[in-house]
Design a protein around this nucleic acid. Structure first.
Length: 283
DNA sequence: CTTACGGCCTGTACGC
DNA sequence: TGCGTACAGGCCGTAA
């Protein structure tokens, strides 16, 4: 995408988690893409007029690249996996688009970037580059877990006085940004901390362990291309494979991975989300 | 201020 | 086979 100009924007559904504003298309057409970055779970697309396009994939969103010169792209694994998409595909033959392809960016040289999100928990928004950090979606975010700011002392300070379970605190984007359910569970396992433990009881020493555990699990997951549970895929259609390295996530009833531990992985519900952990080695 | 909870959507897996 | 229920990688608004 970087270096190419946006020649065409087609919004096929505006009612994402936050509605796409009326001036969205007009503000994007004709702009050149200068950079693609990320903050927390937001993709940040910087344009040549100091506008930034914010994209959030929610739980089920994905971006795909359709190359007009290569029709086999429509067969990219993980692209039309849901029933209605395939059905609609035949009706809309010629566009190559499916029922849940909500936004399509046409770029120079005939490539299309498609935002697909069957649950519409994702969103797109526009921000000014000069005030990006003040944008309502970004302003209150905590430190990047892989950035220099995120240290044991930072985490200990952020957890101080919080009564919520440590699992919920890890999912709180204002404390640490970009951690979801899988990696919260895996980090707590690596740190040997019970997900039910009150956040404020995680002091400097445990925070150091937890911050290190979180960084290591994220680094390894990224290295492995992410975790494919049901339908996650890269823009090129390749699947992640970190799910094979899970210690606890989605492993209810299986023996604990810690050598010598006799425990089995338990599943509980916290803040309406599944938590997986070992009751023996996580205290 | 903090925390708990329901809701947003649609698709899939599973039990009856 | 068909139907109902639970659940899914996120996050916001509201209430307490």
């Amino acid at each position: 995408m970087v270096g190419r100009r946006i020649t065409d924007v087609s919004v096929r559904r505006r009612d994402l988690r936050i509605p796409i504003p009326p001036d969205f298309e007009a503000r994007l057409v004709g702009r050149r893409i200068e950079n693609v970055g990320r903050r927390a779970k937001y993709i940040l697309v910087s344009l040549d007029d100091d506008t930034v396009l914010l994209i959030h994939l929610g739980m089920s969103g994905r971006m795909a690249v359709l190359d007009e010169m290569d029709p086999s792209d429509a067969l990219v694994p993980g692209r039309f996996t849901h029933g209605p998409d395939t059905a609609t595909l035949s009706k809309e033959r010629g566009t190559g688009l499916g029922a849940h392809d909500h936004v399509v960016f046409g770029l120079e040289t005939g490539i299309r970037i498609v935002f697909n999100d069957h649950r519409r928990f994702g969103l797109m928004a526009l921000a000014e580059a000069a005030h990006l950090d003040d944008h309502p979606l970004l302003a209150a975010l905590g430190a990047e877990p892989l950035g220099n700011q995120f240290t044991g002392p930072y985490l200990a300070e952020a957890l101080k006085g919080r009564k919520t379970p440590i699992k919920a605190a890890l999912l709180n984007q204002h404390i640490v940004a970009g951690v979801g359910n899988i990696y919260a569970c895996e980090a707590l396992f690596r740190a040997g901390l019970s997900p039910r433990r009150s956040a404020h009881t995680v002091g400097p020493k445990r925070s150091e362990r937890l911050a290190a555990a979180l960084r290591s699990v994220l680094r390894e997951a990224i290295e492995a291309g992410g975790s494919t549970l049901r339908d996650y895929a890269h823009a090129d259609g390749n699947l992640g494979y970190f799910q094979h390295a899970f210690s606890v996530y989605d492993r209810e009833g299986e023996p604990c991975a810690t050598p010598g531990c006799k425990g089995a992985v338990k599943r509980i519900v916290q803040s309406n989300r599944s938590t997986f952990f070992c009751g023996f080695c996580q205290k």
